[in-house]
């Protein structure tokens, strides 16, 4: 049973991943990403990580991809990208070589261990023990051993929120900073009007 689940989910994952990379339209890429995320969630379930699978679906598929789509629609950049050429000479060939190497080298390393990579056990708690659900196990670890790291991630999130607000905020001087931005006749934004008025008055004084 697990074999079947694995191969189906793996096929979905790989197809989605290739779809992300190869789609010309960003909207298609985003939708392909949902497929990959879903496949990974399935693989989590297959490995008894039920809580993470739920989180994966809710946060990634539910929140992050929606955020991507929202930004794409907001900015109206869902135009097809020309993938036939790369303006950077040699970039694509080098990228493919690097990608192959990044795939091949860990697999080769895995092969040298006889397909049985091992590592040191932290002894934080069992995964297979059905008496302790994985939610409880993760919660226990997060709030004991990793409590400090957890608190720091809260700070990280707060900083990210503030940073995102600062970055996305529309600066009243934004129009002045772009020298080659053509004045948009259709704009009804008061800010833009004021900015263009500023620009003309500056030209007048110059």
């Amino acid at each position: 049973m697990e074999t079947f689940v694995f191969f189906v989910a793996a096929a979905i994952c790989l197809a989605g991943a290739l779809g992300v990379v190869l789609s010309k339209n960003p909207v298609h890429s985003a939708l392909s990403l949902v497929g990959t995320l879903f496949g990974v969630a399935v693989l989590f379930v297959a490995q008894n990580a039920n809580f993470l699978a739920a989180v994966q679906v809710i946060i990634y598929a539910g929140a992050i991809v929606v955020l991507f789509l929202f930004v794409i629609m907001l900015l109206g950049v869902d135009r097809a990208e020309n993938l036939s050429v790369d303006p950077l000479v040699g970039q694509r060939a080098a990228a493919i070589v690097a990608g192959v190497a990044i795939f091949a080298l860990p697999v080769a390393a895995l092969a040298t261990t006889g397909w049985d990579a091992t590592g040191a056990i932290a002894n934080l708690g069992s995964v297979s023990d059905s008496a302790v659900p994985d939610v409880e196990g993760i919660g226990r670890v997060l709030f004991t051993r990793y409590i400090f790291a957890l608190e720091i991630t809260s700070i990280l999130l707060a900083i990210a929120v503030v940073g995102a607000v600062m970055l996305a905020k529309k600066s009243p001087k934004a129009a002045d900073m772009i020298v080659d931005l053509p004045a948009r006749p259709t704009s009804t934004d008061a800010d833009a009007d004021a900015a263009s008025a500023d620009a003309t008055s500056e030209e007048g004084t110059a």
Binding site: L88, Q91, A94, A95, A98, A101, I102, L105
Partner: peptide, 19 residues
């Protein structure tokens, strides 16, 4: 993307070294 390529190349080299 050039910079990213540099990072990828470095990662490959590291992997090759460990291998």
């Amino acid at each position: 993307r050039n910079y990213a390529l540099g990072i990828a190349g470095g990662a490959v080299l590291l992997l090759a070294y460990f291998l």
